[in-house]
């Protein structure tokens, strides 16, 4: 059966379409996972800034390992946790390109802790999209450095016991202390209002890069319904009720040049 392509009705303005930076395909992400939303926000921002053809994205190891498949700009795939170092190598030889990493919590806050800290300390002109869903997704739901106290995972089956398994790491707060950082904020993807705020933050993070202000990172509180054992709706509510209190949303560092900026 063939279906005629929809024609654009006359006198109507097109206000919503797939960003040019995003590939027209289904993703491998689970239903209710917020990776799709984060991908789309990045794509929209790069389109709006006219940066698609100048951008090089760096995928992590984790569920977003194939992120480069979903964008129409150039991409590379880093070793686990090393995306900020790889981004540094790219940005230093191509300083007029836009370089960003897309990393999960295990990648960025556990195995890649040294690389993210030093990229920020050096003030690398890169942007980091940090997906914090408090769990290792791809490997099957193990405890992450961001797992909440008492949260049950496949490697903390009795719940994360802080006495032996330590406490959650708040990356935005830590990185904001480094002089090389120009823009460090935390947002959430659990409802429409917060998604709009997240998009604005992603815009400002890329603005920090193109304005040569320093390192920028947007931490995005995200869901993992599959490994949390929840429905998509329950997962969104769990972010709101459990993650937001542990990981307060807000601006942790905003360079003065960005404070005046209206986007």
């Amino acid at each position: 059966m063939t279906v005629a392509a929809p024609t654009k009705p006359k006198n109507l303005k097109l206000v919503y379409q797939r960003p040019e930076s995003l590939v027209d395909s289904a993703t491998h992400y689970c239903p209710g996972c917020t990776h799709g939303i984060a991908h789309r926000l990045v794509a929209e921002v790069l389109d709006e800034m006219g940066l698609r053809e100048k951008t090089i994205g760096i995928a992590p190891v984790g569920c977003a390992v194939l992120a480069y498949e979903y964008f129409t700009f150039d991409g590379v795939e880093a070793a686990h946790g090393r995306a900020p170092a790889m981004a540094t190598g790219i940005k230093r030889v191509l300083p007029d390109r836009v370089v960003f990493t897309y990393q999960g919590d295990g990648d960025l806050a556990s195995i890649g802790m040294a690389e993210i800290m030093h990229a920020a300390a050096r003030g690398e002109r890169i942007t980091v999209i940090f997906i914090n869903n408090a769990i290792y997704g791809m490997t099957g739901g193990q405890m992450a450095p961001t797992t909440l106290p008492h949260q049950v995972t496949t490697s903390s089956p009795r719940g994360r016991d802080v006495a032996t398994q330590g406490y959650p790491i708040r990356m935005a707060e830590i990185l904001a202390n480094l002089d090389g950082a120009a823009y460090i904020v935390r947002r959430s993807l659990h409802d429409a209002t917060n998604i709009r705020k997240a998009k604005k933050a992603i815009r400002l993070a890329f603005e920090a890069q193109v304005r040569d202000l320093g390192f920028s990172m947007v931490e995005l509180l995200s869901t993992c319904p599959t490994n949390w054992g929840m429905s998509p709706v329950e997962a969104m509510e769990w972010v709101r009720d459990n993650m937001v209190p542990t990981y307060p949303l807000g601006d942790y560092k905003v360079a003065p040049e960005l404070q005046k900026l209206r986007v």
């Binding site: 590379v76 090393r82 170092a85 790889m86 981004a87 540094t88 190598g89 790219i90 690389e115």
Partner: peptide
């Protein structure tokens, strides 16, 4: 570790 991954990116 970082040095070789910077090399990787630049390469």
């Amino acid at each position: 570790v970082a040095a070789i991954n910077m090399v990787y990116g630049a390469a």
